[in-house]
Write a protein that binds this DNA or RNA. Structure first.
Length: 580
DNA sequence: GCCGTTTTCGGCCCGACTGTTTTCAGTCG
């Protein structure tokens, strides 16, 4: 049978939730299905694999009932109970849920009353003025639906990489800060939590004049449509298709707003449930204790009031951080300032590489590293093309490059230099540089750069082979994902982690904004296996060495401490891991 | 439907905004 992906399962669970919702089903059952869908989407393993290993119950939010439905799904490709739930619903309603502002009830009513089968049908109905006559709808909602459909069609993508989202946020922030009553303006939500991709932009403003700020915000020149605008809250859609949500709160109570709007939703819900058990009520205004609202200037005060330690934004995903904060066992996360070197750097040295050459000379890279206060760097160009060079040619090119780097080592005293190469793990599992070439280096970074679509077994074998090679010190961008472009390949990660630990091979957290690979959830797993991680920029141009903080944020989201990250070590310690 | 060292039953976050209403339901974050 065809492999059913987590994405498809999440979509199915959401459809069931919508079906229950449309027909006035139990509110908590609806939430349970939505939670299950979220959880499936965030799972680090494919559910089909977990099911085969009898480990479905390791996924939070999947209880007895949903697990048995999934069991049926994997066995037969179908779930009778789901069919039953959706039996009497117009199939067209589910597509309508993609339209902004339409939830299950409206979608159900529209699909049923107007007999529309898809978004296109609905658009035609709206244009003919058929929606305004339905009970509960009117001319305004008809127009809103038309606008939302237009935006749905225009929208180039639904998520964005962090640097892009920060760029957009910065424009809005500097505009908001122009207002005389704006005390503070901060990007929050997934942007502040540094999630790998961001769906919309959340901004909070501290001001004693919320109305004035909202009015100012509504005049931001890049706004295509104002979705809503109230006394303290507004949402708009920009011409580039990105939605910006704004919340305003007086400065003396800004802490609770920061906390609320940073999220995540699951973190907040859990926090509020715990507060309730302790007879407190949490909202974005503050914490109500014995009927009295307590306000907080900052988040430290806020978390303290709930009897827990301050939780870093990157950890707020409700994956155990609240329990740890309560017990006082949160890890002390690695910081950007802890990073002492970057060893995945591509230069313009003419090595006739298999993949892209860098833009800058060794000397330029060294200068940039000094400006970043690094103690060391690793020069790690791609190895010479495997199919285009003979083994002897590869070795000769590495010799020339090694001579040049050895000269630099002698003339550069302030900064440690490693002579590395990023080599390919070929589809056979073989390495793209012969032993004679590897011996000339201080070590190698090995990565998969081809045949990403191999099955799990083959990919795992390739990674394990690389680990076994004593010259390979690092596995680069371990899952091969390209955010918004290419999915990770699947591998037996526990086996890879075990091998890394046993062979002292480091796993890279690649800071390139569309990689961020290892992904945060796997970082956390790797740490449980005591794997050493290393954060590298993979820069092909010196300014890209400044991407390091994106990699650090991935490590932080994976709960990494300084001790988990190899390149927080000073040079004298760090170099011991290489053949120098 | 899920979940649990105060529970295997009885809970399940909290609020803003809008359009279509005559006080609120639906949607969203």
């Amino acid at each position: 049978m065809r492999f059913i992906t987590n994405k498809e399962i999440a979509q199915l669970l959401r459809a069931v939730s919508a079906a229950y919702s449309a027909t006035g089903g139990d509110r908590f059952k609806i939430i349970a299905y939505d939670n299950a869908a979220d959880s499936v989407e965030h799972a680090t393993s494919e559910l089909k694999d977990l099911w085969e290993e009898n480990k479905l119950d390791s996924v939070p939010g999947l209880g007895k009932s949903i697990q048995s439905h999934l069991d049926e799904l994997f066995k037969t490709g179908n779930v009778k109970h789901f069919d039953e739930v959706m039996k009497n619903l117009p199939p067209g309603m589910f597509e309508l849920l993609n339209i902004g502002g339409l939830g299950p009830k409206s979608a159900y009513k529209l699909a049923k009353e107007l007999q529309v089968k898809n978004v296109k049908d609905l658009e035609n109905a709206a244009k003919k003025g058929k929606i305004r006559n339905l009970a509960g709808f009117g001319p305004k909602s008809e127009q809103d639906i038309l606008s939302a459909i237009e935006e749905l069609n225009l929208k180039p993508q639904t998520r964005y990489t962090l640097p892009f989202a920060y760029g957009v946020a910065d424009n809005v922030l500097s505009y908001l800060r122009q207002h005389k009553d704006c005390d503070r303006a901060e990007p929050l939500g997934s942007l502040r939590r540094m999630v790998a991709t961001v769906g919309d932009i959340d901004i909070a403003v501290a001001s004693e004049n919320p109305k004035g700020i909202i009015e100012h915000f509504k005049k931001f020149p890049q706004i295509k449509r104002i979705l809503d605008a109230g006394e303290r809250k507004s949402s708009v859609l920009l011409f580039n298709g990105i939605q910006v949500d704004l919340l305003v709160q007086p400065t003396h109570a800004f802490g609770a707003l920061l906390q609320h709007f940073t999220g995540s939703k699951n973190h907040n819900v859990h926090l509020r449930e715990i507060a309730l058990k302790n007879k407190m009520s949490v909202s974005d205004y503050g914490i109500t204790i014995k009927g009295k609202l307590n306000e907080y200037k900052n988040e430290h005060q806020f978390y303290r009031a709930l009897n827990m330690d301050y939780i870093e934004p990157e950890m707020r995903e409700d994956t155990g951080e609240i329990e740890a904060a309560t017990k006082g066992t949160l890890p002390k996360l690695v910081k950007v300032e802890d990073i002492k070197g970057d060893i995945h750097l591509h230069s313009s040295f003419a090595i006739e590489p298999s993949h892209d050459l860098g833009q800058n000379s060794f000397e330029e890279i060294i200068e940039k590293a000094k400006s970043l206060n690094y103690e060391y760097i690793g020069l790690s160009d791609h190895s010479p093309g495997f199919s285009t060079h003979s083994k002897q040619q590869i070795v000769d090119l590495i010799k020339q490059r090694t001579d040049k780097i050895e000269q630099l080592k002698n003339s550069t005293k302030q900064i440690g230099i490693l002579n590395l190469l990023e080599i390919d793990i070929l589809n056979t599992g073989e390495i793209s540089v012969p032993e004679e070439g590897l011996k000339l280096l201080d070590g190698a970074i090995a990565g998969i750069h081809s045949s990403h679509r191999q099955d799990k077994k083959s990919i795992t074998k390739r990674l394990l082979n690389a680990c076994e090679n004593p010259h390979v010190k690092v596995i680069s961008h371990p899952t091969g994902r390209l955010l918004l472009q290419r999915e990770s390949y699947d591998a037996n990660w526990p086996a890879v982690f075990e091998a890394c630990k046993n062979t002292h091979t480091m796993l890279e957290i690649n800071a390139w904004p569309s990689r961020l690979d290892l992904p945060d959830a796997l970082v956390r797993e790797a740490i449980k296996y005591k794997v050493k991680l290393i954060i590298n920029s993979d820069a092909h141009e010196v300014s890209q060495m400044e991407n390091m903080p994106f990699g650090v944020s991935v490590a932080r989201r994976g709960w990494a401490t300084k001790e988990n990250i190899a390149n927080t070590l000073p040079w004298v310690e760090f170099k011991k891991m290489f053949d120098v």
